[in-house]
């Protein structure tokens, strides 16, 4: 009876395992396998030829890839840290009572449901010179010429601002949820003991909201690392390689060339970086919680 029930459980699970196997695990194994081959169907020899780690050897010296990696890390750092700081301040500002809270909260949630590519298109319409309102206002008020098509710095900063616009609400709302659920007693006690604001934040608030904060930061890290759609739409990775993040690099530089072996090596390394972060999430977050349960 018990054995039969377990078998039925596996039966229920099997379509899921099959699909994730076919479109998740097998592509992963396949890309690792291809990454150790020389394979270009349009080269003199269109067959796959095993070439040890030559693709990786080329990869670690590939200026384009390394530049892309550096830009990605800078983007992730600036975007996620501003989102966390801004998100925390906004969440704190939300804790006071004021009229229209539910309404403001609803508006704040809106960007989260928007397709990344629409966010890219919205910001392209905002920032393209000749059509966007931001360059127009900047030129006429402070005389600054904002052009994301030619200035690398401007393009990078606008991508960060776009990501902050898109994803700060996620940080804010999850921190609001965490702050709302805090018990009031420790705070009252600390105020009686004469603790200042920074001490209260450092020793009471921070430890208590840590689980929600870590979860949100890791989810944001993971998502920021794979940002592609909105950047493709906004800048197309340019100018130069200023906003060519890893995903954009694969889409624009690696995929269109038919050098499959090398492209696979790039994909594997990008996945490697993501898996390491993902595993840290598991170790720091999910594992302690499930063992405690």
């Amino acid at each position: 009876m018990r054995l039969k029930r377990t078998g039925f459980g596996w039966l229920l699970l099997s379509p899921t395992l099959l699909l994730l196997g076919l479109f998740g695990v097998f592509p992963f194994l396949y890309v690792v396998w291809v990454s150790f081959h020389e394979w270009n169907p349009f080269a003199a020899n269109p067959e796959k030829v095993f070439n040890w780690a030559n693709n990786y050897r080329a990869l670690v010296f590939d200026r384009g890839f390394l530049a892309s990696l550096g830009v990605t890390l800078a983007f992730v750092f600036f975007a996620v840290s501003s989102q966390v700081i801004l998100g925390y301040l906004l969440a704190q500002a939300f804790m006071r009572d004021f009229p229209g809270k539910a309404f403001f909260r609803t508006i704040h949630t809106l960007p989260l449901i928007m397709a990344p590519i629409i966010v890219g298109s919205v910001w392209k319409l905002m920032t393209t010179p000749s059509i966007g309102i931001i360059p127009y206002l900047l030129r006429n008020t402070v005389g600054f010429d904002l052009n994301i098509g030619t200035s690398a710095l401007a393009a990078f900063v606008i991508t960060v601002i776009m990501d902050v616009w898109h994803w700060t609400p996620l940080v804010t709302l999850s921190l609001i949820a965490a702050l709302v659920s805090l018990p009031p007693d420790p705070f009252e006690q600390a105020q009686i003991d004469g603790a200042d604001r920074w001490q209260i934040f450092r020793h009471i608030t921070l430890p208590m909201i840590a689980p929600a904060l870590i979860a949100t930061v890791f989810i944001r890290l993971m998502d920021a690392m794979r940002t592609v759609d909105e950047v493709l739409m906004l800048t197309g990775g340019g100018p130069g390689s200023a906003t060519r993040f890893l995903g954009v690099h694969i889409f624009k530089e690696v995929f269109p060339r038919t050098n499959y072996g090398y492209g696979s090596a790039v994909s594997v390394i990008v996945l490697y970086l993501t898996i390491v972060v993902c595993w840290l999430l598991y170790v720091g977050l999910i594992a302690p919680r499930t063992t405690r349960r």
């Binding site: 990786y56 050897r57 670690v60 010296f61 390394i269 490697y272 898996i275 595993w279």
Partner: peptide
Amino acid sequence: LFIAVVLWVALSLFWLR
């Protein structure tokens, strides 16, 4: 095992470079 593989990849890439 996973930690070992992660370290292997990291060390190999560093070595190649």
